[in-house]
């Protein structure tokens, strides 16, 4: 029932955020705050590692969308990676898996994320 978000600098620039636990109405504020803080510190490329995330509801989805909106407004991006199980299913149902898919080989993943 807990949620944690940790972050570390990523090779090649940007920040990798590791999300663990359940992302819902009660915890999405924490993710929003972290993203806002990183953005304020100048981070433009955010990669969210969801491999330890066990649950994500619509407020979590909203946090991803909000983060991407914010990053793209600054010329950057927010991408998701590592989603499994229920979280992956939610991303598939909402189509967000396509919108925010992280493509490692590309310098600018936004170029490929839109069909």
């Amino acid at each position: 029932m807990t949620f944690t978000v940790t972050h570390s600098p990523r090779d090649g620039g940007g920040v990798r955020l590791r999300l663990a636990g359940e992302l819902d109405l009660s915890t999405s504020g924490e993710l929003n705050d972290t993203i806002d803080r990183l953005a304020a510190e100048g981070a433009r490329h955010l990669l969210l590692d969801l491999s330890e995330l066990t649950f994500c509801d619509s407020t979590g989805i909203a946090a991803f969308v909000r983060g991407d909106n914010r990053a793209s407004a600054a010329g950057g991006w927010l991408r998701l990676t590592g989603a499994t199980g229920r979280v992956d299913r939610v991303l598939q149902v909402t189509g967000l898996a396509d919108v925010l898919r992280y493509v490692p080989d590309t310098m600018d993943p936004t170029a490929r994320s839109r069909p």
């Binding site: 989805i61 598939q92 909402t94 839109r114 069909p115």
Partner: peptide, 29 residues
């Protein structure tokens, strides 16, 4: 981007309609 509908057949079985798509109001096209 919504949950796929269900269809309750005359046999009493339930099917999930294979409907996918992206949530709206986020990206153009």
């Amino acid at each position: 981007g919504h949950l796929p509908p269900l269809v309750l057949r005359a046999t009493g079985e339930v099917e999930t309609v294979p409907l996918s798509g992206m949530l709206i109001g986020v990206v153009p096209d």
